[in-house]
Design a protein around this nucleic acid. Structure first.
Lengths: 228, 228
DNA sequence: CCGTATTTGTCCGTATGTATG
DNA sequence: ACATACATACGGACAAATACG
């Protein structure tokens, strides 16, 4: 056993989680953060070496991430970070529009005042990041805002489904818009209107605004991909 | 190597697919068909022995099925067939209602005459199975009818998402309604109305009928679970 | 509470298939 | 086309944790 002593931060994880889970999380993080680009090949031995584990847990993590839609396996050839096609991204946007419309309607019907306070705080923070032209922070908060809205519906299955789609979309953006100008869309006004509609308990309007909000993202994708 | 010669039908599979995939499919089939009931514990060595493979592919299949929502893992304890709670089933029905409403609207807008012919044939077959009181056939055709509708939308991501939810609902029904009377609901009339609305290109109506159709299934579940 | 048996978690060796010169 | 190098697929052994008597 030539394995070096793990860092202190790793010990607690190693004790409570299986190595497969640790590897899975680490790879997912690298994919989502862009450390592993779509199309990149993952070598079992290499990954195992980097994480100081054997190939067993790595292979198990590969199977999990494959099912999660982040990796693709070619038998006897290797596993690759999935590349999402424009068509697939379009399908995801279409689905997201349906789900987000439901989210808007549902929140208008059953959000609590505490939930509303949270959303307003996130919208304010989003406006600040936008004014400061802080793209990373804006992106982070934008994801958090939408994710929190979905959570506040109280439907755990919806949360699960939604997050899966968002992960794949993130993969696509990283692939397609890598060299793109980092112009932040500034949807601050739209965000405010959505929260207002929810606060006003106008389910019809909140749903419509959410759907249109997603459709605009979809249109931006097409505009960025096709050199119109 | 004391492994017996595989059947001819297995050889082609072994050549084209990895053992992990074969094991995964086999386990999924056993779970969906009820051979493995919710809550049942799966022993690695036992499964490996039954399928004449080593524990490696079995463990990899476990990770994939865990991600697919059909198995649950407790560290150092084992993997179990997932048991879906009533609340979770309710969440899934709520989601399905949203998706199926979208399916109805979409089909009304873009179904082809060939697709319409297919749906009509399925509805007829469903009516026949209902008249013959053939519950198994009715269940099979009912799943096929709804699955085909989703396919005909042309949105592959939607198909993927929908099937995942249906699998989990099947798991729940198998768990909760195991001792229930096998009374078939006979939604023949509803099915006919849905197809009619689609054929009439009435998106609004088709969507509403689909949503209500799912909501009735949801209500039947609650009625079957709570002794009202 | 301790020791044993069983099961899972991890690691590594070997075979097979793929890519490359 | 052949041989070599290399990566994956699979199997089996060891270590660690849990269950049980």
């Amino acid at each position: 056993m030539s394995r070096p002593a793990p860092l202190a931060s790793e010990i607690s994880i190693l004790q409570s989680q299986s190595l497969t889970t640790v590897v899975q999380r680490e790879l997912e993080m690298r994919i989502m953060s862009g450390g592993l680009a779509p199309g990149a090949k993952l070598n079992e031995i290499e990954v195992a070496g980097q994480l100081n584990v054997s190939r067993g847990p790595v292979r198990e993590a590969f199977r999990a991430l494959e099912q999660a839609g982040l990796l693709r396996t070619e038998k006897n050839r290797g596993v690759f970070v999935r590349a999402i096609s424009v068509q697939e991204a379009d399908e995801i946007y279409e689905l997201r529009a349906v789900l987000d419309e439901f989210v808007g309607r549902t929140l208008a019907a059953r959000i609590t005042s505490e939930g509303l306070r949270e959303l307003r705080a996130l919208v304010e923070a989003l406006g600040a990041a936008s004014a400061a032209r802080d793209l990373d922070e804006y992106t982070r908060l934008n994801l958090a805002f939408h994710d929190r809205m979905v959570e506040l519906t109280g439907n755990g299955k919806l949360v699960e489904t939604y997050r899966r789609l968002v992960k794949e979309l993130t993969l696509f953006r990283r692939e397609a818009l890598s060299g793109s100008t980092g112009a932040l869309p500034d949807s601050t006004r739209e965000h405010r209107e959505i929260v207002s509609a929810i606060a006003a308990r106008d389910a019809e309007l909140a749903g419509r605004l959410m759907r249109e909000h997603v459709e605009r993202g979809r249109a931006r994708m097409h505009a960025a991909v096709d050199p119109a």
